[in-house]
Amino acid sequence: MISVEINGEQRELDVDPQMPLLWALRDHLDLTGTKFGCGRALCGACTVHIDGEAARSCSITVGDVDGKKVTTIEGVSGPVAEAVVGAWRDLDVVQCGYCQSGQIMSAITLLTKNPSPTDADIDSSMVGNICRCGTYQRIRAAIHQGAKKAGGEA
């Protein structure tokens, strides 16, 4: 039995410890906001936060998160998260929307660690999040806007 705090709630997972966290979240906890895109840590659609760090849940086992804190898109909170999600909505970043949970999770991590990123910083941190619809121009703009909004923290 693996014990993990997910979105502030203590959960017990009675699954194969080798199971990718992604499938445990989606299939066993019905937290479907975290998406399956490639299964090989190549696209970022499954990005969650583990103890505050961005992580690719397809490449992390349930065993890896025993005793840790996991946050998914459904559970993000705080001024940076609000600024990011708000900017995403203000600028209508989304198209199909499938990758956007992962994009937002990466963007929150980026702004938490680097409150005023340059375009190059954004590229460096977001290059692992693929958007097939090509919403990158707006992702970039939304991160800049989110940085401004969350500016009190900078």
Partner: peptide, 13 residues
């Protein structure tokens, strides 16, 4: 936009 930025939007999967 909202359902696609808070994880609630329902895709087939």
């Amino acid at each position: 936009s909202r359902g696609k930025t808070d994880g609630s939007g329902q895709f087939g999967l």
